[in-house]
Simulated scan of single mutants.
Amino acid sequence: MRILLTNDDGFFAHGLQTLYNVLSENNQHDICIVAPEGQRSAVGRSITLFQPIFVNNHKLKGNDYGLAVNGTPTDCVKLAIQGDILPYQPDLIISGINNGPNLGSDVFYSGTVAAAMEGVLLGIPSIAVSLADYDCEDYAPSAQFIKELIDGNSDFIHYKEGLLNINVPPLTRNAWHGKRVTRLGRSVYDNAFEFRKSPNGKEYYWITGTLLYDEEPDTDHRAIQEGYVSVTPLHCDLTDYTRMKDLEKAKE
């Protein structure tokens, strides 16, 4: 399979490099990495319009191909698919493995999910993968899980109309309770903005706050809490069809 890897944590992020090392074992797949040169978390679906996009080549194993881009995750996928910079079109795009969860409403801010969504918009099956803990550094179980989906030719990875948002609990593989297909939960940020001054007297604000999750039983949040891999299908069509019907009736 021809695979494009990307992320929002940067080309050299541990999660991305672990995923590459696992997927590149035995040379079963052709793999390209096109990822931001550094940290681009929480940039959502932003793209670069008013400055140039620079690219640096990085040698990978064999004929695999690596590019670090000074843009956003969405830039990376757009450039990879539409910029004629790769030797082939990928069969699958994988964004991750992200450092930290992408659950519930967080998907609207996530650069990881945004990169996968761009793949969907360009007609390529795409997966976003996150390790649902900021302090856990063992990405191997998550990478092995994705490898098994790919090597098993799972139906999970061939759907072009939407992406799969996969979150993996920060547990050893034998501690998982399995995988659960879920819906997005609701994340509410009780934000505060701390007023501060820099040493030279310039005023600025620093965002802080508490993240609150709902705990309904069929959500991605609940699956992670209970030790399951959460698999949430997402679609790029944000149309509220129920509201459409209501509005159609209102104008009659």
Rank of each mutant, 00 (worst) to 15 (best):
Y241A: 12
A68H: 02
S24C: 07
G123Q: 06
I93K: 02
R196Y: 12
I81M: 15
F195G: 11
D8G: 04
L103A: 13
R180D: 06
T48P: 03
R243Y: 07
G44I: 03
S46V: 08
P199A: 09
G62Q: 08
N26L: 05
K249G: 00
E252P: 03
P87Q: 09
A116S: 11
A140E: 07
T48S: 13
E215V: 05
N7Q: 04
D237A: 08
A80S: 11
N153P: 03
L121I: 08
P217K: 01
A114T: 08
G104W: 04
L49H: 09
D246S: 15
S142L: 06
L149Q: 11
D190E: 10
E118H: 02
L4H: 02
Y65G: 01
V69T: 06
G62T: 06
D91L: 03
I3Y: 00
R222C: 09
L122N: 12
K59Y: 10
S198I: 05
R2V: 02
L86T: 03
R222L: 00
T210A: 10
A175G: 05
T172A: 03
D84T: 02
D84W: 03
K249M: 15
N98T: 13
S41Q: 12
D246E: 13
H58Y: 15
L184F: 01
P87V: 06
E37Q: 08
F11I: 02
D214T: 12
I127E: 03
G185D: 05
A80Y: 01
H158Q: 03
R40L: 05
R173K: 04
Y205D: 02
F12C: 01
C32V: 06
A35S: 11
N63R: 10
N99Y: 00
R2T: 07
I33P: 10
K202A: 14
A250P: 00
V181I: 15
N70K: 04
L67E: 02
I3E: 00
S130T: 07
Q51L: 07
K202F: 14
N63K: 12
T6L: 01
H235Q: 08
S142V: 09
Q225A: 11
S154W: 09
E148N: 00
P217N: 05
A128Q: 09
V77R: 04
L92E: 05
N200H: 09
Y65N: 00
S142D: 00
F54R: 09
K59F: 09
P52E: 14
K245M: 14
I207F: 04
I157N: 00
V120Y: 13
V188R: 10
P101S: 10
S95V: 08
D138S: 10
D151Y: 05
I94M: 04
L247E: 12
F108L: 13
A114F: 05
A175D: 15
A115R: 09
V107A: 09
L164N: 04
T72V: 08
L234I: 10
L4W: 00
Y88I: 01
L247M: 15
S130L: 08
E215W: 05
G227W: 12
G10A: 11
D155V: 06
L23M: 07
I31P: 05
A68F: 02
G209A: 07
L19R: 00
V168E: 00
S95N: 03
E137R: 05
F12N: 01
E161G: 15
A192E: 14
K245H: 10
L238A: 14
V181K: 08
I94D: 00
D214E: 07
D246A: 11
H14Q: 13
K202D: 12
P73H: 09
K249F: 12
T242P: 01
